[in-house]
Simulated scan of single mutants.
Amino acid sequence: MITDGFTYLAVLLLIGGAIRLLETGTNHRIFNYLPGVVALYIIVMMLSTFGLWQQSASVNATYGTVKGNILPAMIFLMLLKGDLRKIAALGPRMLLAFAAAAISIGVGFVITYTVLNTWLPADAWKAFAALSGSWMGGTGNMVAIQGALNVPDSSMGYTLLMDSIDYAIWVILLLALVPHAKLFNRWTKSDTGIIDRVGEKLDLGEDADKRIDFTALVFLLGAGLAASALSQNLAGLMPATSFFTGTTWAVLIATILGVSAAMTPMGRMAGSNELANVMLYAIIALIASRADFAGLTQAPLYVFAGLMILIIHGLCMVAAAKVFKLDLFSCGIASLANIGGVASAPILAAAYSQMLIPIGVLMAMLGYIIGTGGGLLVGKILSLLS
Rank of each mutant, 00 (worst) to 15 (best):
R186V: 12
A223Y: 06
A276T: 06
P358E: 14
V44L: 10
A100F: 02
K86A: 14
L175Y: 08
A223R: 03
M365E: 15
K67D: 04
L257G: 00
I15Y: 07
T3F: 00
F76K: 02
S154R: 09
A216K: 10
I253N: 04
I19T: 07
M162E: 08
M78A: 12
R93Q: 15
L77F: 04
V11W: 01
H180Q: 04
V37H: 14
S132T: 03
L173K: 03
M365W: 11
G82P: 02
M1G: 10
M142Q: 14
G91H: 11
W125T: 09
T159S: 11
G271P: 03
I70C: 00
L220F: 05
V342A: 14
E206P: 00
R268T: 13
G306W: 07
I370C: 00
L9V: 07
W170I: 13
D196A: 10
K325E: 06
A343R: 03
Q354H: 08
A291R: 03
D203K: 01
P265C: 11
V151F: 09
Y113V: 06
T26L: 13
M162S: 05
G222Y: 09
A226K: 06
I169N: 02
Y167S: 12
L9F: 12
A129M: 07
D207L: 12
Q54E: 14
L177F: 04
S289N: 03
L362M: 11
A227I: 09
D153N: 12
P35R: 10
D196N: 11
L252P: 03
S154H: 08
L366N: 06
V44Y: 08
S134R: 05
V342F: 06
S344M: 15
W119R: 05
M317C: 01
A305T: 13
S155C: 02
C316I: 06
V59I: 04
L220S: 09
S155I: 04
M78Q: 07
G367M: 04
A124M: 06
T297Q: 04
I333P: 00
I105W: 04
G222S: 14
M162I: 14
T215R: 13
N338M: 06
A226G: 11
K322T: 00
N32K: 14
D292H: 05
S330C: 03
